[in-house]
Every structure is written in structure tokens, then in C-alpha cells.
Simulated scan of single mutants.
Amino acid sequence: MESENDTGVEYFVIKGISDLPNLQAPVFILVLLIYILAIGGNLTILLLVGMDSNLQSPMYFFLANLSILDISSITVTLHKTLVAYISGNKNLSFVDCISQAYFFMALECAELLILAAMSLDRYVAICNPLHYHMIMNPRTCVILATACWALGFVEVVPHTILLGNLSCYTSNEINHFFCDVKTLITLSCSDTSLLKLWIVTEGVFVSGLFPLLMTLLPYIFIIFAILKINTNSGRKKAFYTCSSHVTLVIVLYLTLYFLYLTPSSESNLNYHKLFSLFNTAAVPLLNPLIYSLKNKKVKSAMKRQLHILYSKVVYPST
């Protein structure tokens, strides 16, 4: 649905993942399945961390925060897509669209900062194990997590204000499945130079580069500490404790690189949608899978809780 050229819009039309009629049902089923698995996997992590005493440590506290962020992020971006397939209503008001863009950016920034906090936790655990519980005490963990959430939601406020002030759009059709800032900039006929400059200076260097450096810097010290371990088994164990976190960092940053540091044009919007779908749907699904498949403590906790549940069902107390 086209609006008049060079005018503002009251609502946007979200085109979705695919325009092909024959693909509507399969895409809906696929997205719904990914959504259910991602929500279920992250809720499982949250329940395990909350219920199992062996997971009551800083590492899993931050993992629980990561799960909350993933549940929130996938819901913010995919809920309209799922509702649109059922109701047929693809319209989204201007305010709702800007709000969706804000929450998506805020949650992404908070997730990068939580990953940086997890990197700091691994540094203390490996480089200063004798003082680990004293340094990473519950108060410190809560302060770190709160700072990550607060900073993530505050630092994207200028982006949102500048985005909300764009008053001219060539069309109200968004070739995407949610209100992504890059797509909105492509559609806008307003002067977007200030917003683009802010995204490059603050968005890339502060929201992106700062948490990346804060994530990588501890690993420089971690690598040196691991290399000093005399036994191969000790080095393997130390590397293993970091492997899940490193995998998440690599996957997330590579996805964000392809999303926001590649040229923006109408011709590559379909590729942008695919990378966005991977970032918003597959990454939240990968997080619990990586930690459940690669982490022995999580697998052991899951077996214990399933055994407890089985015992309660088969041998209920009288």
C-alpha cells in the first residue's frame, strides 16, 4: 500500500518475510515453530537456574539475564508477524513502529553488554579463582546486570528521537517483518544525515565497539592465564568453560556486522531480512541450545530436575 510521495505517514504496512502467497503458510509454521522453541528453550534455562542449586553462580545469573533478553527480543520482533499471518492485518501505527524499533535496539545493546559482563565473570573465574566468589558476589552481579539493562535502554534514546522526527516517507510499506531502523532510513525522504552520523559514531563505536572491546579484553588475559597452566587437562577444562560464551559472541557479532555495516539499498533488503530473521529468531534459539549441549552443569541440572519431576509424577507423596 503506497502513501503519497514526500509526506508523513500515520501507519506502516509490514510486508512480512515473504510476499509469495504459496509460502505464507510454510513461513508462518516455520516462524511459529522457531518462536515456540526459542521461548521454550530460554524458559527452560530460567527455570533450571532458579530451581537447581548447582546453577546458583554468577555465570548462570548472567545466562538467565541473557535468556530474558532473548525472550523479550524475539517477542518484540516476531509478535506482529505471527499476528499478521492469523488476522491478515499488517498495519502498524507510526508510534508502535518507532516503539518496536526502540525496544529492539535497546534489547540488542543490553545483550551485548551482558555478554561483556559474562566475559568479565570468566576472567575472574580463571585468572583469580581464589577470590572469585568474593569479587563476583551477588551484589556485584546485580549491579553489573542492572547497569547493562539501564545503559542498553538509555543509549538508544537519541536514535529513537531522531528516528521519530523523520516526517517524510516515500512509502508506508516496510519490506521487512518488523520496524527496523535501517529499513526506515531507506524509506525516508527526510534528511537522515544526522541520524546516520549518530548511528555511526554512537551506535557503532559506543553501542557496538565498546562492549566488543570489553568482551575481548578479558580474553587476552584469560588466554595468557590458560597458557600458563601446566597440564593439558587443565588447559582443556579452562577453554571448555569459555567455549559456550565465545560461540555466542562470535555468532551475534558476525550477524550484527552483516546487518548494520553492509551498504543499505533496496536491492539487498531481502538479504537484510534473512540476516535479521537469523538474528531475531535463530540466535535466541541457539543460546539455550549451545549452553544445554556444551555445558555439563546445565545438562546435569536438566537430568536432575527431570528425575525429580518423574519421581513426583510416578511416586506422588501421600
Rank of each mutant, 00 (worst) to 15 (best):
Y85V: 08
N270M: 12
L63N: 03
I308D: 01
L195W: 09
M59L: 14
T77V: 14
E173T: 14
L151V: 10
N54R: 02
F278P: 04
L48W: 01
V95I: 14
Y169R: 06
S276E: 07
I229P: 07
S265H: 05
P129K: 06
D70H: 09
Y60F: 13
Q56E: 03
I34A: 09
N175G: 01
L261N: 13
L254W: 08
Q56K: 06
L213T: 11
N42E: 01
N268A: 02
T7Q: 11
V157H: 12
V31H: 09
P158K: 06
L195G: 13
L130Y: 10
M214W: 03
A106N: 15
M302C: 12
L256C: 08
L248A: 02
V204P: 01
A301H: 00
L217Q: 06
I220E: 07
L23M: 13
L163W: 01
S171A: 10
H272Y: 14
K15Q: 12
M136E: 12
E155K: 08
R235Y: 04
T186N: 10
Y271W: 06
T247Y: 15
L30E: 15
L166P: 04
N175W: 04
K294G: 03
F61S: 13
F221C: 12
P263C: 01
K303C: 05
Y60N: 08
Q56H: 06
A64Q: 13
T255N: 13
L43R: 08
I174E: 03
T81G: 00
F177S: 02
D180F: 01
L217H: 11
L286I: 07
T75S: 11
N137L: 08
Y11A: 01
A225P: 07
L187E: 13
L48E: 08
A147R: 06
C179H: 06
K196L: 15
S93Y: 07
L274S: 11
L120C: 10
A106V: 02
L261W: 15
V49Q: 13
I17V: 14
W198S: 08
I161R: 15
M51P: 02
I135M: 11
H133R: 12
I114W: 00
I14E: 04
